[in-house]
Amino acid sequence: MLTPAQVLDEYHLEVRCKLLEIAAIFDRYDRAGAAFPDERADDDFRHERVRASLEVLASDKENASRAEKLARIFSGPVD
């Protein structure tokens, strides 16, 4: 297992890249909304999933099992 510093060294650029990509996707959605105001999809259920995921990512609790929580957020209901 890597040390915390090694994890940062190994994955910091990957985190940066993926966060930038997410930010760019949000910007893209906003520009599309401005370009096609009659086709906005602001009540689409997927927005809520993204918002909930961002809250999980921002959590600073240790052992937060963030990946599992996100997988559950993006899963359909279990009967």
């Binding site: 990957e14 890249c17 930038l20 990509e21 760019a24 996707i25 910007d27």
Partner: peptide
């Protein structure tokens, strides 16, 4: 692949 631009963000800048 990781640093600088990605294909998608580059396309965004071309559109903007």
């Amino acid at each position: 692949p990781l640093t600088k631009m990605t294909p998608e963000r580059t396309a965004d800048i071309l559109e903007i």
